[in-house]
């Protein structure tokens, strides 16, 4: 369960203040599927970064699964990112020198999981995403769709409760885009909360709820929005 209240985020660009988020309030039930939409520069990524604890709001509170995470210290927030949040990016952000296997294993390595347990978990994840025969390939030897599947495998290897995806299909052709969306939706079916930023109205329509952002605010409500 996610609860954002009165989130403000202001960037200083030279002398000028840029309000990326203005009094954002948002709630998401566990297992929801939300699409965040809106014009470029409206604050979608800023919102997702706050949700993923990649950025801190200037004010406001953020509650995740009953913990007031906006009050936690850096180390504790890192642990939340590790165990509760899976992040998927438009540009995949795979480590170029590591194989698909090692990229997926990274969160397990960081949290000190033993090698033999890593082996079984990563192999299972790669198999689930149809990547078994690509385990030893480096990212530059994979197609865009395969890279994004590796990235999703990595984001979900720790069994997070929330998946945050910032334009996950933005860099893919139509068919791999749909493939990736289906994978994310399947994970949502298994119970993970899915929050996805997208420009594509077709993608947006697939979600159960759409949140429209304009100029740093959440604008009215679109389809099925149960509101605050």
């Amino acid at each position: 369960m996610i609860q954002l209240q009165h989130i403000e985020r202001v960037f200083m660009v030279g002398e000028e203040e840029v309000h990326a988020l203005r009094d954002v309030n948002m709630a998401a039930e566990a297992g929801e599927y939300i699409a965040i939409m809106g014009p470029s520069g409206s604050g979608k990524s800023s919102l997702l970064n706050i949700l993923g604890l990649l950025d801190r709001p200037d004010s406001g509170s953020y509650e995740l699964d009953g913990t007031l995470v906006s009050n936690l210290d850096e180390k504790q927030q890192a642990a939340i990112r590790m165990h509760k949040i899976g992040f998927v990016f438009q540009f995949f952000h795979l480590v170029p020198r590591l194989s698909a296997f090692d990229n997926v294993a990274l969160p397990l390595v960081l949290s000190g999981v033993k090698p033999d347990e890593r082996q079984t978990r990563v192999s299972a994840a790669l198999a689930a995403f149809g990547l078994s025969n690509r385990a030893r390939h480096r990212p530059d030897q994979l197609s865009g769709g395969q890279r994004q599947r590796v990235a999703i495998a990595r984001a979900t290897i720790m069994q997070p409760s929330v998946i945050l995806a910032d334009e996950p299909t933005g860099n893919l052709d139509r068919s791999s885009g749909i493939e990736v969306a289906e994978i994310l939706e399947e994970l949502n079916h298994q119970g993970m909360t899915l929050i996805m930023v997208t420009h594509d109205p077709e993608m947006g329509k697939r979600s159960r709820r759409q949140v429209l952002m304009v100029d740093g605010r959440i604008e009215g409500r679109t389809r099925e929005d149960r509101g605050q």
Binding site: G52, A78, A79, M82, H93, L110
Partner: peptide, 16 residues
């Protein structure tokens, strides 16, 4: 930079 950002995104702390 991107790799470091990624490591943080998947749960690496400042100390790590």
């Amino acid at each position: 930079r991107a790799e470091i950002g990624l490591l943080k995104a998947i749960g690496a702390s400042r100390g790590q």
